[in-house]
Simulated scan of single mutants.
Amino acid sequence: MPALRDIRRRINAVRSIQKITKAMKMVAAARLRRAQERIISARPYAKRIEEIIQRFVSVFETSQNPLLKKREVKNIGIVVVTADRGLCGSFNTNIIRAVLNLIEKRKKELPPDGKIKLICVGKKGYDYFSRHRKGIEIFAGYPGVFKRTIEISDVREIMSKVVGGFLSGEFDKVEIVYNEFKSIVQQRIVIEDFLPIVPKFEAVKPSKGVKVPLVEYIYEPAPIEILNSLLPKYLETHILRVLLESNAAEQAARMTAMDNATENANELLRDLQLLFNKTRQALITKEMLEIAGGAEALRKAGAS
């Protein structure tokens, strides 16, 4: 039978942890509101600029801009977006597992001398792949991005590294893996192509071989000049949206995890309190029996 002092210590420890998880839940809820506002305001702009870029991409031949040109895929870059902190359920674990599965899949598609290089955004992913490389090169790491408000300078630094690696031939294709924010209780892992930019809209191809969009527009200045000026903004917006999605999803996952931890602490406290009461009752009963036994022994001794 456990001692009452030990049970009381466990109860106090669980109550202390419960206070921490409850506070973390409230902090995550406040951060989630801000993150949710940012991603909701960023989505329409990101969607619209992607539609504009896709409209231009459907017109031009890929040779007119190196970011549109498809190459033989020998090396692949994967941008892995995780959190900087834990205590957010399976948020980071699911991303890492998805990246490992993607790596195994891409290895089968690459030539024997092909390489997979990672760009790790977030401390958890960077730490994991630094310890468990398994023949995978970390091309760049950005731990600490989510420990503060996401700034456009961080976005530009990441974009510059990724685009520079693509243009220099470090990798022939770039993919991004991140958690998309759907709701407080739902986050969806997304794996999407980043570079090269490929057309998604349907286009008409006349007999002369020139691609024409379904609706033609007259542009001023020349369309290729507009495309070249919009591409950096589009890539920045894409990365910014991914970081905002991941940040909102992280806060939602942490809030849910801390809420579950608080509820589990409540259940554990109930069980410990019940055990404490049972143990205390057993000790009281034992003491009463000992007193009654002593009194009976004294009575018999006096009678003799």
Rank of each mutant, 00 (worst) to 15 (best):
S246E: 04
V145M: 02
A140D: 13
S207D: 13
L102Q: 08
K108I: 07
A257W: 06
I284Y: 06
F166V: 04
L118T: 00
Q251Y: 12
R48M: 08
K117R: 13
A42R: 11
F166W: 03
I197D: 03
K105Y: 09
L230G: 03
L274R: 15
I103D: 02
Y217F: 12
A46W: 04
G86D: 10
A253N: 05
T285F: 08
I7A: 04
L118Y: 01
I52A: 09
E250F: 15
A28Y: 01
E220A: 11
L274F: 14
F56T: 03
K108C: 03
N266I: 10
R48P: 00
K74S: 06
K233E: 13
N228R: 10
I226R: 04
P44V: 09
A28K: 01
L67A: 00
R156H: 08
F166T: 02
N266R: 14
N12Y: 09
R34S: 11
L244S: 03
A265F: 07
L283V: 08
R85P: 00
G135D: 04
G141A: 10
A3T: 13
M24C: 09
P223F: 04
L275A: 12
K208M: 09
A265I: 06
L244R: 03
P223C: 03
E51T: 09
K19P: 02
G135P: 02
N92M: 02
L274N: 15
I17S: 12
K108P: 00
K25F: 12
Q186M: 10
E290H: 08
V73F: 03
R8T: 11
E290F: 06
K74T: 10
P143G: 03
V162S: 01
A83F: 00
K22L: 14
L298E: 13
G164R: 05
E72F: 06
R34P: 00
V99Y: 00
V174P: 01
I239C: 06
G122T: 02
Y45R: 13
E151C: 06
I184C: 02
K123P: 01
G86H: 07
Y219M: 08
K74C: 07
I78G: 00
L227Y: 07
F166S: 02
Y45A: 13
L167G: 07
K286A: 15
N260R: 12
T279A: 10
G293K: 15
Y128D: 05
F60P: 05
I197C: 03
N92G: 03
K233N: 10
I291L: 14
K233L: 14
T262A: 15
L230A: 07
E37S: 14
V215L: 12
P223T: 02
P66W: 03
E263V: 13
N94H: 10
A253V: 01
I191N: 09
G144Y: 06
R299W: 07
Y217M: 12
S90T: 10
R9P: 01
G135F: 06
I95C: 04
E50K: 12
I197R: 01
M159T: 13
V27G: 00
R9N: 12
E157R: 14
L68F: 05
V73E: 04
N277Q: 15
T82S: 07
M1R: 09
E287L: 12
T21M: 08
